[in-house]
Design a protein around this nucleic acid. Sequence first.
RNA 1: GGGCACGUAGCUCAGCGGGAGAGCACUACCUUGACAUGGUAGGGGUCACAGGUUCGAUCCCUGUCGUGCCCA
Length: 959
Amino acid sequence: MIEKNYQPADIEGRMSLVWEDARAFSAGRPDRREADPFTIVIPPPNVTGSLHMGHALNNTLQDILCRFERMRGRDVLWQPGTDHAGIATQMVVERQLMERQQPGRREMGREKFLERVWQWKDESGGTIINQLKRLGASCDWSRERFTMDEGLSKAVVKVFVELHRAGLIYKDKRLVNWDPKLLTAISDLEVQQVEVKGNLWYLRYPLEGKTFSPEDPTSFIVVATTRPETMLGDTAVAVHPEDERYQHLIGKRVILPLVGREIPIVADTYSDPDKGSGAVKVTPAHDFNDFEIGRRHGLPQISVFDKEGCLNLVDNEDYLRELPEASEEFAREFHGIERFAARKKIVERLKNFGFLERIEPNTHMVPHGDRSGVVIEPFLTDQWYVDAKTLAQPAIAAVRSGATTFVPKNWEKTYFDWMENIQPWCISRQLWWGHQIPAWYGPDGKVFVAETEEEAIGHAIGYYVEQEVITPEQGREMALDRNKRAGFITRDEDVLDTWFSSALWPFSTLGWPDDVPEVKRYYPTNVLVTGFDIIFFWVARMMMMGLHFMGEVSFSTVYIHALVRDEKGAKMSKSKGNVIDPLALIDEYGADALRFTLAAMAAQGRDIKLSASRVEGYRNFATKLWNACRFAEMNDCALPEGFEAAKAEETLNRWIAHETAAATREVTEAIEAYRFNDAAGAIYRFVWNVYCDWYLELAKPVLTGPDSAAKAETRAMVAWARDEILKLLHPFMPFITEALWETTADRDGLLTLAPWPHRVDVPTVAEIAALSAASFADPLVPPMAPSLFVPFDASSFKDEAAEAEIGWVVDLVTAIRSVRAEMNIPPATLMPLVLVGASAETGERAPRWTDVIKRLARLSDISFADRAPEGSAQLVVRGEVAALPLKGVVDLAAERTRLGKEIAKADADIERVDKKLGNPNFVAKAAEEVVEEEREKREAAIARKAKLEEALGRLASVG
RNA sequence: GGGCACGUAGCUCAGCGGGAGAGCACUACCUUGACAUGGUAGGGGUCACAGGUUCGAUCCCUGUCGUGCCCA
């Protein structure tokens, strides 16, 4: 029995359990051993994360694809899991320690701290996974993976060692984006450019050999800067080589104010003559552009900050080199001052000595760490790098050749732009939570990269014996005695960027590097579904790693979906406070309604601005379906064994078969083309506007009539079409459809494993037997219902005659209702209908639909006549006149107005078509079908107008 | 400054070379035996603006204005 009211909360939890118990989503089910695999890896959410609208959209789309392919008989693996989110997770746990007033990370030490992080992960790390389950994600939960798992960590180590051996990973001293709060390097992509209202400070740098005076412009050069505090690390001044103002100064030297260092004036095109003073100070150790200028001119790099962003001058050899002794006092005075305080103090000092020309307000972009929120400091450090440029080449080629395609295609441009300008990828992070880099250092700093410490020691001993640092004898002793070699080499303390492990996700989750059958079966994956914002973070890196280590692309299709934005079109973010919580929407309207909304709005290439009213509307759609199924149940509609829809005899039943086939084709083709909104729209219209509005209404007289063959067939057909609807809708609304599937009949299997209506590979009888055998062999696999295999070829079934007949009924009823409403005839008034001058076809059809038409159009009687009775309202349906004779009820003036409006409409049609057909160019140049179509339109409009005028004439003669 | 989108009914959005569509909102009527989380009928748009291509442009091209995003 179906409950009276649809309550999503009541069924969603229960259906989740049903699927789980049946292990419905397990990859490699025995009954699908021979089936084609279909694989999607989930973009792993942060283990610290919770479900936001972007996740909801992303996973809804993946789930639609997975459920669709699962029903099409594929062996689906949707690989779930989370990533360890190095910085975010470490921050979460550190914050927790602080809140509980427990010892901090450094006090407890690395090992203890990592234990705490794991403990946190075990307790709270499952949040987002449970939220994905609430959304209905049909992942193979038994295969859930975590980037810090043993197996995935093994893959990380192997990849690092092999890339290092191949020279594709190396250590280098370069500028990195340094987060002075978190004390780690971060990636370009974790840096947010924020517009900040700052200043341009114009500074006077005295020229060497002149006596500096603020009054004498020939005694100095003015440089403009947004970061005056970095001037302590300046090693040059740059001007544009063609800037006439400065030609005479190129090659001269200036004395750096406050510091006293002599630095050159160089010519470099980076300097923009139109910006500031046209001269810039060059600080290679604290600015990415200056770093490049420094390289071009061979300038020294002087870092003046420490890793916390405080001035570091005392004992700073780079800084103090070649400086006069007096400057040591200055160094002591400024040493240790935080960078923004230093800015104030330095500007003040410059001003006091006349070196500050002026200050100009200037709005510019300043890099901020997206986790810490503090201003990022370009900082010169030793880090590990991946040679991304080399690895990118095959990844670029794979997209060029079409081995991997983007949907929509225009994202390929973005991909190429990024890949072709890719920079070395800094992969080391100064954190504790993550994969510790498998590199060890010998006593002299020599690095040994190996999969294990034992192996590294072996290499080290060999190396140092060869270098005669230790004797062969010492080496032998160390190799044999653990105690003797303790502390000989020390491991790199840093960990790898989280994205380094995520890049391996499509194959590490399958078990690589172990030789397991899953790798062979499920790699390459079929499609990756993601938002464009992580094309760079993730897609590109998976492409690089997949091609290098597997020799094959990671996925053949990348579907890039929209971003979910708020009602103003702004990106949803916590700091803006404009987030809509998907879980709140699920609580209010159900997961099915939310999923359907997201699918219906997921038009390609367009962002989604979500509003709750849409979700409500689709919840109502679910209710509609629920009630339609209740109707079927109340009328004892059931599918008899062996029923064949294609062989139905009743016109109405053939019509719904025709419509079902059309809807099936539409939905199937739309999902295949990733047009989720079209698919959702097609099933929505079919359920509501075809099945509910017309089929069930037209079937009512038959269902409530006397027992007959027609009644039996209609009962079967109502149930059959309902089942087809449940299947077509299942990928979008899995909970309600599975629940109704369970309740509406005695089923042998779950809907989620039932075959898709459009399945091309309808199994033969022999195959069914084999499948059943396989199913029964494994008690966990529910056998498939034999009745599901009754062939109905949705790809080809058509019945145009049924379509024409039911179409006439629909048009007639609609026209009568429209006239009644316009004439203000109360619904309680039953009117007679007269079909005027009916054709033979109509004469045959009408009696077959008397009951239905009477009921739906609220008629007392249907009759035929050659002329419309006096004083009747008349309407034209498919070229024939129907009259509603009701003397006294029909307001003649109103009817005259109504007919006048209809005629005007017909006139407008005729005029528009005439204009076209009157154009000789149109007739000559337009496609023949188009011209023919227009001619037909014209004829129809003229005929319609004639009938209407006739009706108006009759009215005039009466009144 | 460079790149990518987008401006269609009051709102949120589809459509995209030959008759302007949906959901919500709105108006009127309906306690009709599945459903008021509903039914029936209806109102509402110079498809941002200006040029061009075409027999024909909401749709293709160019420009202008406006909005958003990404990158520098």
